[in-house]
Design a protein around this nucleic acid. Structure first.
Length: 396
DNA sequence: GGTATCGGAAGCTAAAAGCA
DNA sequence: GCTTTTAGCTTCCGATACCC
């Protein structure tokens, strides 16, 4: 629907030195045929509507009890106030627990990863093989491979002493109100902090304080702008309280009190000094960006290894036990020197977020009515008596 | 199919630093 | 003293190679 959304939100970091440019023209999206799985909206319903993503059986909650079917969500209509023609800028709101993202983006709720347990001291056989050991002696693996008689504890290397360290930085403890640096130590599920609203796309003014995102902007292009003054004067930027305010996750939920559609609100003229949009930037916030050179867990996966036919313990022993070689089982095969491992060149390339666009092929609304210059109050969405209408945010 | 090899992330834990 | 942080060291996951 709002195909411009993803492009605009990420390009806001463009340098303010660039010359202001008009926003890209609003593309015309042909009406998408109805998907056919859901009943059509009733007559008179607001032009935007949507349905939840059908429950995906592949995404089974591992924490759910066995046999529990994934929750199903009844079809609902996504109400949206009539909006003006022109730029339609929306940013992705945070997810809320229990509700899927409407339409496109799956709510990122990875299952809690179980912490790896490791034994205090692995036996020499397991340690040399880098395999899981257990507390029993002989351990399970040694028994399996007939190494029970050599299954003994290794010797833990003594830690170096006298290592000087600089003054350590205090981490934030829960409730201390200090700098939030950790929080991961507590192990308790914490409410995800609401990210600050992203800046508007280049060329569009920053909304005034108190206007939550997503924002809707009327067109700034005076040539085909219905919201611009007729005398050729620059259009007055106006902000519209987000439709998301009237829907999930900002307040719409089954049983929520109805809220009226917003009125058009003039905003102070505060054109941002940024420049042109960069349409190639993805919309997703790159929280996974490693800024300190730390490698992500996945970055090392899938890496090809050249393995030197062992015998030469140099590489392994050099890494692991520089001075206390484990009592490794005899290696029968003689060894060619291990080639140097491949470098960082074979890191997995970043995957572009294409899934969003695919999932946006969803029930399409009829074209919105012409914008008359202001938003007329529309009956609340709860006045609709369709199949359990639920006002939802309109970011799709 | 199995085991061997091994890079490196994850985890453990003791030393160092900070605090009352 | 105790608590907290840091970092050295170990465990073992997971990928690949090799062998039967």
């Amino acid at each position: 629907m709002s195909g411009e959304r993803s492009k605009s939100s990420s390009s806001a970091s463009s340098s303010p030195q660039e010359a202001p440019q008009p926003p890209p023209p609003m593309p015309h999206y042909p009406p998408v045929p109805y998907a056919g799985h859901y009943p059509p909206p009733p007559p008179g319903y607001p032009p935007f509507y949507a349905y939840p993503v059908p429950p995906d059986p592949a995404h089974h909650d591992p924490n759910a009890p066995n046999g529990t079917a994934p929750p199903t969500v009844a079809p609902f209509y996504m109400a949206m106030p009539p909006h003006p023609h022109g730029m339609f800028y929306m940013a992705m709101p945070p997810a809320a627990p229990g509700y899927p993202y409407p339409g496109s983006v799956p709510a990122p709720q990875p299952p809690p990863k179980q912490k790896r347990k490791q034994v205090k001291m692995a036996c020499t056989n397991c340690a040399s093989a880098c395999k899981r050991c257990d507390e029993a002696r002989p351990c399970e693996r040694c028994v399996k491979y007939g190494l029970a008689e050599t299954c003994i504890d290794g010797v833990r290397k003594e830690r170096k002493k006298g290592i000087k360290r600089g003054p350590y930085k205090r981490k934030n403890r829960a409730g201390s109100g200090e700098d939030v640096a950790s929080g991961v130590e507590s192990g308790e599920p914490q409410a995800a902090p609401v990210p600050p609203p992203p800046p508007p796309p280049p060329g569009y003014p920053v909304p005034p304080e108190g206007y939550p995102f997503p924002y809707m902007y009327p067109p700034m292009d005076a040539q085909h702008s219905e919201g611009s003054p007729p005398n050729g004067a620059p259009p007055v930027p106006q902000f519209y309280p987000s439709p998301a305010l009237y829907g999930y996750p900002y307040g719409a939920y089954p049983g929520a009190p109805p809220m009226p559609y917003p009125q058009l609100v003039p905003a102070p003229m505060a054109v941002s000094p940024n420049g042109a949009a960069k349409p190639d930037a993805p919309a997703s916030v790159s929280t996974a960006a490693t800024t300190n050179g730390a490698t992500s867990p996945d970055a090392s996966r899938g890496k090809k290894r050249s393995r030197g036919k062992n015998g030469d313990e140099s590489s392994r022993a050099a890494k692991k036990t520089k001075d206390v070689p484990p009592q490794a089982p005899p290696q029968p095969n003689g060894g060619a020197a291990a080639p140097v491992p491949v470098g960082a060149a074979d890191k997995e390339p970043q995957q572009p977020p294409q899934q969003q666009q695919q999932q946006q092929q969803q029930p399409a609304p009829p074209p919105p009515p012409p914008y008359p210059g202001h938003v007329e109050p529309t009956p609340p969405v709860t006045a609709f008596s369709g199949p359990e209408p639920r006002p939802l945010m309109a970011a799709m």
